[in-house]
């Protein structure tokens, strides 16, 4: 079983700065982590590898320093790592990102077939939940998003059964490999790497691929040029013309009473609604 896990290095905090010219986010100086949602997918991939043998390759597209996140993943137990880095990738939206990552996965497949691709449910910076499905669609794999449980895998028949969260319930789906999975958060707990993993991670060779090395021929499909969406404006939300009106009173009881008066004064229908509703108990 060969599993590729797409991980993204993301800024750790809510501090951001925006590039004044390109309106893209500047990441310098902000501490980074592996996108937390990706860890649920990484853990599930490691479990499948432990159960069925094979290997886990982690893949990321980002600036050279994104290598840190790959080493972290190796330290947790991944076997192999590929960093896709090239100035042509700067400013990629989801379509361009999934193009680059899918092409790199195809490149990986040239030497080692890939049975599954895992991606995070979404990132905490881009937050679109589209890159996984985009990669999947380009690779022509079966798409399994919001998976909360991998029920069974039959490597011989090349079949997998998963529980997928949908609105109002859980779908139990059976499909064929290769497939792309995004795991729901909270479905497992990322392991600590072993001492061996840590040592190996420090010494391991991370394969570093430029766009050309990944087999991308058409650079117009990468980065800003390959992105159909354009950020036209970045701005702070408008404050409402009026700030919240503080209610007057001395002490909690008086404040509470004043607040209730103010609530029902501005929402006269609310009181009768609440009465109707609470009449039940």
């Amino acid at each position: 079983m060969h599993i590729v896990v797409c991980i993204k290095q993301v800024p750790d905090s809510a501090q951001i700065r925006v590039h004044p010219v390109t309106n893209t986010i500047m990441r310098q100086g902000v501490p980074t982590i592996i996108n937390p949602y990706d860890l649920f997918s990484l853990e599930e991939a490691l479990r499948l590898r432990d159960a069925f043998g094979g290997k886990v390759t982690v893949l990321t597209m980002g600036p050279p320093m994104a290598e840190d996140s790959l080493r972290k993943a190796l330290g947790i137990g991944a076997d192999d790592a590929v960093l896709l880095t090239d100035r042509f990738f700067a400013g990629s939206d989801t379509l361009a990102t999934s193009f680059a990552l899918a092409t790199a996965i195809q490149k990986i497949m040239e030497t080692e077939p890939v049975d599954m691709v895992f991606a995070g449910k979404q990132t905490i910076d881009g937050d679109t939940a589209q890159v996984g499905p985009g990669i999947c669609c380009r690779l022509g794999m079966q798409q399994l998003t919001y998976v909360q449980k991998v029920e069974s895998v039959d490597p011989a028949k090349r079949e997998i059964v998963v529980h997928r969260r949908s609105e109002g319930g859980v779908q139990v789906l059976k499909t064929s490999l290769p497939c792309m999975i995004t795991m729901l958060e909270g479905t497992n707990q990322i392991r600590y790497g072993t001492m061996d993993d840590m040592f190996r991670a420090a010494r391991a060779d991370v394969r570093v691929w430029s766009a050309a090395a990944a087999g991308i021929e058409d650079m117009t499909r990468c980065g800003l040029r390959g992105s159909p969406t354009v950020v036209k404006k970045v701005f702070a939300p408008k404050a409402r013309a009026q700030k919240a009106r503080p209610v007057d009173g001395e002490g909690a009881e008086a404040l509470a009473a004043a607040a209730i008066e103010a609530i029902f004064a501005s929402q006269p229908k609310l009181e009768s609604d609440l009465l109707k509703q609470s009449a039940g108990y």
Binding site: T128, Q130, P133, T145, S166, E167, P228
Partner: peptide
């Protein structure tokens, strides 16, 4: 932007090679 809508939107936009703005 439900579980269904997001699952579908991503593959539709990729197939059509067009832009998709989420959420």
């Amino acid at each position: 932007a439900t579980t269904l809508g997001r699952d579908l939107a991503g593959s539709v936009a990729t197939t059509l090679a067009t832009g998709l703005t989420a959420d």
